[in-house]
Design a binder for these strands. Sequence first.
DNA 1: TCGTAAGCGAGACGGTACGTCCGGTCTTTTC
DNA 2: GAAAAGACCGGACGTACCGTCTCGCTTACGA
Lengths: 198, 198, 198, 198
Amino acid sequence: MAEIRRGRPRSEQSRRAVLEATRDLLEANGYDKLSIEGIAARAAVGKQTVYRWWASKAAVVADAVLDGFIPMAPLSLADTGDLSADLTAWLDQVAKATRSNAHAGLIRALAAAVSTDEPTGDRLWERFTGPDRQAVIERLQSGVESGQVRADADLAVTADLIAGVTLFSVMARKEPSDDFTSRLVPILLSGIVPRTGA
Amino acid sequence: MAEIRRGRPRSEQSRRAVLEATRDLLEANGYDKLSIEGIAARAAVGKQTVYRWWASKAAVVADAVLDGFIPMAPLSLADTGDLSADLTAWLDQVAKATRSNAHAGLIRALAAAVSTDEPTGDRLWERFTGPDRQAVIERLQSGVESGQVRADADLAVTADLIAGVTLFSVMARKEPSDDFTSRLVPILLSGIVPRTGA
Amino acid sequence: MAEIRRGRPRSEQSRRAVLEATRDLLEANGYDKLSIEGIAARAAVGKQTVYRWWASKAAVVADAVLDGFIPMAPLSLADTGDLSADLTAWLDQVAKATRSNAHAGLIRALAAAVSTDEPTGDRLWERFTGPDRQAVIERLQSGVESGQVRADADLAVTADLIAGVTLFSVMARKEPSDDFTSRLVPILLSGIVPRTGA
Amino acid sequence: MAEIRRGRPRSEQSRRAVLEATRDLLEANGYDKLSIEGIAARAAVGKQTVYRWWASKAAVVADAVLDGFIPMAPLSLADTGDLSADLTAWLDQVAKATRSNAHAGLIRALAAAVSTDEPTGDRLWERFTGPDRQAVIERLQSGVESGQVRADADLAVTADLIAGVTLFSVMARKEPSDDFTSRLVPILLSGIVPRTGA
DNA sequence: TCGTAAGCGAGACGGTACGTCCGGTCTTTTC
DNA sequence: GAAAAGACCGGACGTACCGTCTCGCTTACGA
């Protein structure tokens, strides 16, 4: 069942070195000053070794992110029972994280990467936005069970709204007004709370 | 008031040639295969002439967009009196426009440009997202006057939600489900319609 | 007496494959587009197998020549008793052979190889020029015995003159004048014929 | 009449720097460790500047030789009236020069260059062997006038013999026997001296 | 009307990075 | 222990652009 490979096996050490170099250089200089040549040099690895395993700069960055070399702090979406408070707290966390220069730059870098390299972009995008989106959906689902969200609410669309507005404000480099989150949550929730009227 | 300039005045013909070349090459090969060298060559213009008037590739692209050399079809947000129908129609238009390969590529290109060049990016972003955002806000305001939207509704946040979810789906390269728009509008509206309950 | 070797014996088949690949590629692309990597690939042989047995590109080429994979037609220097006619005939043969594109290229390749790799170059040079040089000396010696060449003639120097002028005209890519050979032989002979004067 | 050149003119300083770097590196490491990359680096010149003006490594070397950056000591062929003595002296000079490691390496380098790059090779070869060959022919011609060489002697073929045997001994890396020159000259001369016999 | 001050196309300059090829070496499994 | 396979580091290849710098040539304005 296992694929039998002949010849010298891939060096795990080189793989790590490349990914670590990518992380360091990305932090230091940003995505578009990142170069394969520079990565190889810092990793003390032949350029060919990079080209052998990754198709593009975006692909290297994607692996660096996906394999956890570039820590994108996982933001926990608590479930205290109070959906509004939980969402507000989480969005404040997100706002804070994305406004930090390091992360905002990285996110824009990933946006550029996504723009440039289709297949890798897709993989990166999915892995990058997927888990958080899933967490949001699950929290909303929990809200359904506790009666804070009505049963037929469109959770997926709501999650996309949240992801979208977050992306938008990062890309726009907007200094968010302090109350942006607190203004946002009610609007989001009003789409999914149990109907109050007749 | 007007700055008096000595010496030979700037050639309008060269300016047009550069912007047209940019448009053609951007359409043909995409943003990151676009090069100043290539633009100058196709415009039959000295490289220095480009560098004299524009600070970066993103700046040239921005001018090409802003001066209408790259036609971003202006999408009209009608005011028929039925806010829900108007928004749905407009979002369908947007969805169609942004899914066309040409426009989606351009949008992602602009996203990359925004990521890369801060001051130009801001100008580009504002001019690019501003008018549509303004149109949405005005239509919502008209809804306030007609009583379809409550007076204290947070129009700006709602407009950002719309812009965000649109950007998000373009970047994600998602083929939108046919009913995405029709699922989206009720959620958006529920945040701003007059309160039905007590 | 014979060296007893342990382990798997050297593969004669690989040796032949390498030498044949060398011959083919040398014919096709010339000496300096020849690469060890290319030889190994065409011979379906590991690179290491080449490196195990040959020290350099020149060494492989040398073996290919010496083992007859690259046919350098052996030119026969007849002994009809007429030294002048024999030498003329032989030099005409040599001229014809060396002027053919295939052989001229090969000879220049060998010259380059000799320049590059000292020990192999020497071996190659000796084996390559030696036999013909020896044949010339023997024919001249036979001339001594028949009285056409005087006893104290300097046969070695004469042979070097012949080899030199041949190499020179190949390297110079000169199209030889038709009568070059017939002009050359009298001069060569005049240095070694029996003295006519007092 | 004069070619009107537009744009920035070629930098003479860069040209000199390249040729000087070539000379230095060639002396230091020999022809096949010479690299365009290395030349450009040492000359503090962009690689493209080298590629813009020279087609190959051989071409750079050729220009370096032809423009006198690589001094090939011009060997003077005196005319004392004694042809035999003059030739012997000159050949001793040549032997000494070509046996010095620096020169022998360079000559073999040029041979390799000639082998590799046809048009440049031809130019190089002609300029390199031409003047000496011409000097020999003129000295022989002078011998004709003084009666030491007979009028119908084949001076061109004799000059080729001399050049050939010189090239041959350099390529063969032969340590020349001390008396090689003194054995060579009589043979060469016997082909062209006035006939002594009937 | 003439000089001085830009702007212009052209194109060479020193550089950086590209993506590829090859040189030698090393490390597997297979024979 | 040799062989095929194939990854490793290193380094040069030749190309594409970067942003800068001269050139000779307009094209304006002000003295």
